[in-house]
């Protein structure tokens, strides 16, 4: 996934061209990645539906979440949203932290 963000333009130099030098490849990888995210999000509809249809005392085999310990885990896409929101918050808070703790490289004088 990480390499998907390399949007280096093709170089005019005679140097060999590498896979992510072509923005088309980067776009392709990004599209595959976004599609996988969508699939992983939608998959969570399965236990939701299976949980609704099954008898209360006989959990369906498709309800892979019936082992979950907390109520929120049953929400559709809970883990996906937790990861997304968590990481955005992580980066935004880290930017605030940087304002407080960042100093020039020579700060300690060695």
């Amino acid at each position: 996934m990480s390499e998907s963000l390399d949007s280096g333009a093709p170089e005019p130099s005679p140097e060999k061209s590498y896979v992510f030098d072509d923005p088309k490849n980067v776009q392709r990888l990004l599209r595959i990645f976004f599609a996988s995210c969508a699939v992983l999000f939608l998959i969570d509809a399965i236990p939701l539906v299976a949980g609704l249809l099954a008898e209360p005392d006989a959990p369906s085999a498709l309800d892979y979440k019936h082992h979950a310990h907390y109520g929120v885990e049953h929400w559709m896409g809970f883990y996906a949203i937790y990861g997304l929101v968590g990481c955005v918050a992580l980066v935004l808070l880290a930017k605030v932290l940087r304002k407080i703790v960042m100093r020039p490289e020579s700060y300690y004088g060695d």
Partner: peptide
């Protein structure tokens, strides 16, 4: 599945 969800969407945040 839940692990893949959390990882892919963390990567989505990065992207």
């Amino acid at each position: 599945i839940t692990q893949l969800q959390i990882l892919f969407f963390s990567a989505l945040a990065f992207a």
